[in-house]
Design a binder for these strands. Sequence first.
DNA 1: ATTTCTTGGTGTATATTATACACAAAGATA
DNA 2: TATCTTTGTGTATAATATACACCAAGAAAT
Lengths: 248, 248
Amino acid sequence: MISHKIVPNISVDCVVFGFDFEKLNVLLVKREMIDEKSGKALISDHTLAGYHIFDDEDLDSAAARILKGLTGLDNIFLEQFGAFGQLDRVSSPKDKMWLEYINQGFADRIVTVGYLALIDNTKVTLTLKDRDVSWFPVSMIAEMEMAFDHKFLFYRALEALQRKVKVEPIAFELLPDYFTLSQLQKLYEALLGTSFDKRNFRKKVAQMHYVIPLKKKQQGVPHKPAQFYLFSREVYEKTRKGRISFII
Amino acid sequence: MISHKIVPNISVDCVVFGFDFEKLNVLLVKREMIDEKSGKALISDHTLAGYHIFDDEDLDSAAARILKGLTGLDNIFLEQFGAFGQLDRVSSPKDKMWLEYINQGFADRIVTVGYLALIDNTKVTLTLKDRDVSWFPVSMIAEMEMAFDHKFLFYRALEALQRKVKVEPIAFELLPDYFTLSQLQKLYEALLGTSFDKRNFRKKVAQMHYVIPLKKKQQGVPHKPAQFYLFSREVYEKTRKGRISFII
DNA sequence: ATTTCTTGGTGTATATTATACACAAAGATA
DNA sequence: TATCTTTGTGTATAATATACACCAAGAAAT
């Protein structure tokens, strides 16, 4: 049954995180409502990557489809972080303007399913330019104008990410295949908003036998080159103890 | 806007857990399709507590409403554990029979939002009898006939429960207000399928200052009476360290 | 009154893990 | 050759986890 009809009432929104070796970023889509006479933007804001689902696809597939459309990438790490009724969140005058503007029979969304996506920055930089899509530091979201309940969704995603990162080795999804221990440490510091002692952090990583040192070293850096490491999910699955605490 | 129309496409299912001081149980609703001529049951199975949502209510409210209808209780611990597309799960011949039988325009559910409920057994025993609702040991679910994707949902709920119980003090929701340390230990053992050393378990609980000993003791037990304890969420919120590991 | 039964309640020694802390080495650049 | 920046390493102390066995309290039976 290949019907491909849009399902009313339900939408999927993806909160896409990236890491630039300094800080955590989110992918947002900018949109503007242009006044036809003056040609100027009447209102503008940012949205998450979201769309309705089709009636012949799974929720996970819908999220993957949306992300593929936005970044050109397949096989992105995706995890649901919640479903939200949203009746009482479409409340600002601005939101109502948007609804009138975009309403094509689909505006009566009742439930939004939120997905958390982690992507390796080094793999997308090229594909982005031609769209009104760009990275924003997570620290900047508080002051941004965002559509509907998207700021709320963003913070729920961030909370979910911070929770999960302590318990599962998903942070590696934000790094390239080869990474240094300093990069890994900076990533965890950016994710959790803390800082770690270098020696103790490395001691902890040394116990994770699924973080494997390579023979390769950094090249062309103006200082002592660091060793590269690799995350092996295979080794992780085999050697995971019943432990809970991951980092920290 | 009080419209109270049923929202198509979306349903809420609650997986209700209870603890009888021995093992973990789930609340299931039995249903039968009766043949009008012979008066015999053609097919029968068990379902979770579920229903559609109304367009003027939140997801959480819908789940609470469904549970109130089933148990008569308000203020039940409820937490979402996921949203699921279910297109490809309504596949058995039996499921199709059911769909024809109950179809009243609502059968085309696309998304089910799953809720995990924890209830204090001692507070519901009375209200149940008059319905086809009863407790089943979690260990028995594997062999049971369940509707649609409900068995799948049950296991997802169980996984979520086992995950959360290690990280947050939600297990207390399954116990009466006053409980003994042995009851608490048995609960964790039932939840996680492990067993703990009594002395070490109690040492761990002693560090949780939000598990507070009372002056009351058990009465009428044919052995040394145990001291009662109380869980204080207030103290928990104030004294929680950044720690992750809860029990284990 | 004494015995028996069942569950409650406790401490110590050892191993493991977490924390705090400072300096030399590698390579690029000037 | 000196300077700069980041890498990479060890040890001592505190805190936490684990393994393990016996007496105490009360009810029930004799």
